[in-house]
Amino acid sequence: MQTTSAWAPPASVTLRGVSRVFGTGADRRVVLGDVDLVIGPGEVVALLGASGSGKSTLLRLVAGLDRPTSGQILVDDVPVDGVEPRAAVVFQEHRLLPWRTLAENVAFGLPDGTPRAERQEQVTAALSAVGLADFAGFRPRAVSGGMAQRAALARALVRRPGVLLLDEPFAALDALTRLRMQDLVDDLQRTSGATILLVTHDVDEALQLADRVVVLATGEDPAAGAGIAHVVEVPQTRPRDRADPHLAALRAQLLERLGVPSHHSS
């Protein structure tokens, strides 16, 4: 396990009145309307919502891959302007470069011009943090989907990001691999104290990993775009028991909010 010194100090993330509108005229579509959110340093926030609720859009705004139509986003009180170097993104698909080995893909997470020895050392540390030390020379095609996604996680970790942005990172994995990945991220977060913004549509995943679950949904007027519909603090300490009855209660509450009543009666 790498030491905490390998991590940058966790950053805070602040969204002030953030909206994002796509299209103009008749095609105008408000995806996010006036979102305010503060994520403290070292906090894990899960963004939960139905498909199209704007949760990935919000994450892309924090990453600087997209710009808000209005409002402001700050990372550690510095406005995000263009691709944010203090953030690192893990996408739903691993998006490894197929012509590079896993180690070379992880090295892609480092800025160009990192000295060779330092690069080597950091890549090795990141690969062993995700349990892939023995697979450094393999190409993405030669490993399983779960391993490829762990390499993508290592590529993000090697940047020593102030905030780790996870965009449904386990959605494409099989159920068992997904649970292992959740435990891995949980372990890494607890040892490093990293700030994490996790976008997911999986209520259990949100409750397993997050200190706070934020539900994004459209209000009474869908044309005004999605906003924060509900916030749930998860007080249980991590790592959490998946069978914890307290979590079951929160789960029912969140599902209700997402329009899925927990008592499904015919």
Binding site: A63, L65, L97
Partner: peptide, 9 residues
């Protein structure tokens, strides 16, 4: 892949 490239600077 191009977006990954941009996201990683």
């Amino acid at each position: 892949l191009v977006e990954v490239g941009r996201a990683y600077g």
